[in-house]
Design a protein around this nucleic acid. Structure first.
Length: 484
DNA sequence: TGAAATGTTGGGGCG
DNA sequence: ACGCCCCAACATTTC
């Protein structure tokens, strides 16, 4: 019986894996393959990918198989493996990034005549096609999208890993994991990542258990970076070490077992934000590059390399911003509330183009994800279809006081401010000099002065927004609006 | 899934 | 007792 190829992509798991299960159900022996391509994979993501692949390979070895690792253009690599193994079919899970979709269509062109190709929508609660509005157009606003999605009922229950797993990997060439060169070497900046995360299907399952116990406090606590109530499932979901269906049903079950709370609903709504982001990316492939609101093509952004670097390094003089950016650098992750604060600061206080922030996030986040990242940055920048209005400008000091009231999150990530009391820590410059002295703190030396005056920056951003709108109204500038 | 400016109200001090 | 003012607290509007 000829083997079939299971092309692993963003579904690095054995449980509830539609492509793997269908391949096993075919009755043919399986060749499990991962092909490293260079699609939108930043440094932190590559670190994660290394260990996720290692884990998947171990799990396959426990089932007397292994993961075939290759590198190159997937359609060519898969064609070569199909030829050398005599495979009759390829099973894989779709991705929704433009370049990944192009990859899939090239695969179809190259092999569609000689092999059976079985793609699965397995990355989201729903496929990216449904739901649609009554006029059969994609939703552009989250809430009606969410209501229509919830109206479709619960997603399917997860399925267990195929057992036994019949595979055929003898004699199939594979690279060693180290040959993929996914880990940082000089310097090795990954210590904080190693301390924080356990990539792989087992780690994902453990994290899901923890998240379920925290769900009851999620509605009220998820905005508090000083607490640990968010699930931290994002990188596991990104690499498909568990499916959103597994998360959905585990959270629902936990909510039934405990006293019912608003927490589960708030949590599951967030899971649908993930679906919505990929749905938007699928229907609007320009999402990573272009503002969905065209008028923002004319926004007067400021190029400012020094300010961008201060932001990246966590050296802006706004404690909550610096804490977030340092948490990101150290651990490859940042609390969601703080992501909104630092993003608002970059886009509105510094008026730096949102794509420069998006690029930094893609390189430094372990959960870097083109759909989520693009949709979220456009949301913050005010140029998405369902975005926060541009004039909704966060005051980083007030946000800090509101969501990190005791300053514990700041103390954790900005140690030079750790001695300051809660009243002073969000605004070190306003602290009395003797308070700073007794904390061993020299403003402008140990910790920077604020790189902008927030009140002035806010007014400048509002004026820039107004100028963009005026430009659109004036006849001289309007020809662009009639283009395509 | 804001913040600041502006408007309104009502209690209390005071002449 | 009464009106006036102050201002905190809350509500509304605007950016």
């Amino acid at each position: 019986m000829p083997p079939v190829i299971v092309w692993f992509r963003r579904n690095l798991r054995l449980c509830d894996n539609a492509a793997l299960i269908a391949a096993a159900d075919s009755g043919c022996p399986i060749v499990p393959v991962y092909v490293l391509d260079e699609l939108d994979c930043g440094g932190a993501s590559r670190w994660w990918l290394h260990f996720s692949l290692e884990r998947l390979d171990k799990d396959l070895k426990r089932r007397h198989s292994r993961l075939i690792l290759r590198r190159g253009r997937p359609e060519r690599v898969l064609a070569e493996i199909a030829a050398s193994t005599g495979a009759a079919a390829i099973y894989y899970a779709r991705r929704y990034e433009p370049l990944a979709r192009a990859q899939e269509s090239r695969l179809g062109e190259l092999l569609g005549d000689s092999l059976d190709i079985h793609p699965y929508d397995d990355y989201l609660l729903r496929g990216p096609s449904a739901p649609k509005t009554q006029s059969d157009t994609p939703f552009k606003v989250f809430t009606p999208y969410w209501k229509a999605s919830v109206g479709l009922g619960d997603p399917p229950l997860p399925s267990p890993a195929p057992s036994p797993l019949q595979t055929a990997t003898d004699g199939v060439a594979s690279l060693a994991l180290d040959e993929l060169a996914l880990l940082p070497t000089s310097p090795d900046w990954a210590q904080g990542l190693r301390d924080t995360w356990t990539p792989g299907e087992d780690g994902a399952a453990a994290r899901l258990d923890v998240a379920c116990t925290a769900v009851k406090d999620y509605a009220d606590g998820r905005d508090r970076p000083d607490r640990d109530l968010t699930s931290k499932l994002s990188p596991h979901l990104h690499f498909g070490e568990l499916s959103p269906r597994q998360v959905w049903h585990a959270v629902k079950a936990a909510n039934l077992a405990a006293a019912r709370s608003r927490g589960a609903e708030a949590f599951l709504r967030q899971l649908y934000w993930r679906d919505f982001s990929h749905y938007l990316l699928f229907h609007f492939p320009d999402l990573p590059e272009k503002p969905l609101r065209e008028e923002f093509e004319h926004f007067p952004w400021h190029e400012n390399a020094a300010a961008l670097e201060a932001w990246q390094c966590g050296w802006t003089g706004f404690p909550i911003v610096d804490a977030g950016m340092r948490q990101l650098w150290a651990t490859g992750w940042m609390h969601n509330r703080v992501r909104m604060i630092v993003a608002s600061f970059l886009v509105k206080d510094l008026m730096i183009p949102w794509r420069q922030g998006a690029d930094w996030f893609l390189d430094t986040l372990v959960d870097a994800d083109l759909g989520n990242n693009s949709a979220s940055w456009q949301w913050v920048a005010g140029c998405g279809t369902d975005a926060a209005p541009y004039f909704r400008i966060f005051n980083p000091t007030l946000q800090g006081k509101k969501f990190d009231p005791n300053g514990d999150y700041i103390r954790r990530w900005v140690p030079e401010l750790a001695q300051l009391p809660a009243e002073a820590i969000h605004e070190p410059r306003a602290a009395e000099r003797d308070l700073l002295d007794s904390a061993g703190q020299r403003l402008g030396v140990d910790y920077p002065e604020p790189i902008v005056n927030h009140a002035a920056a806010r007014n400048e951003a509002l004026a820039a927004y107004q100028s963009m709108r005026d430009l659109l109204k004036s006849p001289a500038a309007s020809p662009g609006s009639s283009v395509g």
